[in-house]
Simulated assay, not measured.
Amino acid sequence: MKQNLVLVFLLLLLSISCAKQEKKINGISFVASRDSIRDIHVAPVVKTNASHVALMPFGFVRELNNPEIVFNSKRQWFGETKKGVEFEASQFKKSSIESMVKPQLWISRGVFTGAIQLKSDAEWELFEKSYEQFILTYAAAAESAKASMFCIGTELEKFVLARPLFWSQLIAKVRKIYSGKLTYAANWDEYKRVPFWKDLDFIGIDAYFPLTDKQTPTVLDFEKGWATHKNEIARLQRQIGKPVLFTEYGYRSVDYTGDKPWESDRIAGKVNIEAQQNALQAIHNQFWNESWFAGGFLWKWFHEHERAGGEKNNRFTPQNKATEKLLEQLYLQKKG
């Protein structure tokens, strides 16, 4: 009898463990709003069965020759300010949606953040001082708002590789003021070279991997394209021992959407909702059932839902497209 009770207890623990593994972060990347949001703006996100939103306050760098970051300014949209982030997190919290605060940089003239390269230690130190203030301001906002996750940076490869000591110190400082989970959003071609994954809680990847050059790939085409990338991600995950989080993932509703999924500056392209849907289905098929995969944040969602997206829109958002209904179904399957 005693042995039977022990067996039942072990099976119960195993079932609880499996249930925990199945609970995924079903995230939405929520674009900062010009003014404060209300219940009417939260309701469409709730309808997708999302469990989390990424709140993304931007800091702006006018010139890399004078690399100070402008942030939390009265001239910025409300959702990009410290007060705005705290307010938006509280609005989503009322609907049981958790937040990841994910500060990001915007460099004038479209310079890619991953290519930041400064000429001297003095310039690096000026930039680091400004970046630290930027990150700690929003880490404090995340703590105040009881956000469940905080992202210390997004697609900053050359900065990360050039200044490893700065990043180690920054992580320690963030830990002192923020009590939630930490990640970093590495670009899809950067994540294997990030040196500080073991100091964080998630391996964060902006998952815009090239998958297929077909005009309208099938779900199977996309899944075949994932094979090598998935193996490499899983290999790193085993090495580091931390769950993988897609800090961004998504596809435009356009022809050839699996070829260069990161392209966002090119407006042209024939609308292709089917390709977007197939890509979304494939990434969920490949990752959402893996125990080592934490979930992801779909790129992207605008607060004025009735005016966003639509069947003639070839951009990333799933809003008011057949893709939105598919997202609801996929997130419902892994709703915690």
Rank of each mutant, 00 (worst) to 15 (best):
residue 165 L to C: 06
residue 142 A to D: 12
residue 147 A to M: 02
residue 168 S to P: 09
residue 142 A to N: 04
residue 140 A to L: 13
residue 167 W to N: 00
residue 143 E to N: 09
residue 162 A to I: 12
residue 145 A to D: 02
residue 167 W to Y: 11
residue 159 F to A: 14
residue 146 K to E: 13
residue 141 A to L: 03
residue 151 C to K: 04
residue 165 L to W: 05
residue 165 L to N: 14
residue 149 M to R: 11
residue 140 A to G: 13
residue 148 S to E: 14
residue 143 E to R: 02
residue 146 K to L: 13
residue 161 L to E: 04
residue 159 F to K: 01
residue 164 P to R: 08
residue 138 Y to C: 03
residue 152 I to M: 11
residue 160 V to K: 11
residue 159 F to Q: 01
residue 151 C to P: 07
residue 167 W to A: 07
residue 141 A to F: 01
residue 161 L to M: 06
residue 140 A to V: 07
residue 150 F to Y: 13
residue 156 L to Q: 14
residue 160 V to G: 00
residue 138 Y to L: 07
residue 146 K to R: 05
residue 148 S to H: 09
residue 141 A to R: 03
residue 138 Y to S: 06
residue 153 G to V: 12
residue 164 P to H: 15
residue 141 A to N: 00
residue 166 F to V: 00
residue 145 A to F: 00
residue 144 S to T: 08
residue 165 L to A: 15
residue 147 A to F: 04
residue 164 P to M: 01
residue 163 R to E: 03
residue 142 A to R: 00
residue 165 L to K: 15
residue 167 W to L: 04
residue 151 C to T: 10
residue 158 K to E: 13
residue 145 A to T: 01
residue 166 F to I: 02
residue 154 T to H: 10
residue 166 F to Y: 06
residue 153 G to R: 08
residue 143 E to M: 00
residue 157 E to G: 05
residue 154 T to N: 05
residue 147 A to R: 00
residue 161 L to F: 05
residue 149 M to H: 14
residue 155 E to F: 15
residue 138 Y to F: 15
residue 166 F to K: 09
residue 155 E to A: 05
residue 162 A to K: 02
residue 152 I to G: 12
residue 157 E to C: 11
residue 166 F to N: 03
residue 149 M to I: 08
residue 144 S to L: 02
residue 149 M to C: 14
residue 163 R to C: 13
residue 159 F to V: 12
residue 148 S to D: 13
residue 161 L to D: 02
residue 158 K to D: 15
residue 164 P to Y: 15
residue 138 Y to D: 05
residue 145 A to M: 02
residue 161 L to S: 12
residue 158 K to C: 05
residue 164 P to S: 09
residue 143 E to T: 00
residue 166 F to P: 05
residue 164 P to E: 15
residue 154 T to L: 03
residue 160 V to R: 06
residue 166 F to W: 08
residue 167 W to H: 08
residue 140 A to N: 15
residue 152 I to T: 14
residue 161 L to Q: 08
residue 147 A to S: 14
residue 146 K to C: 10
residue 156 L to V: 13
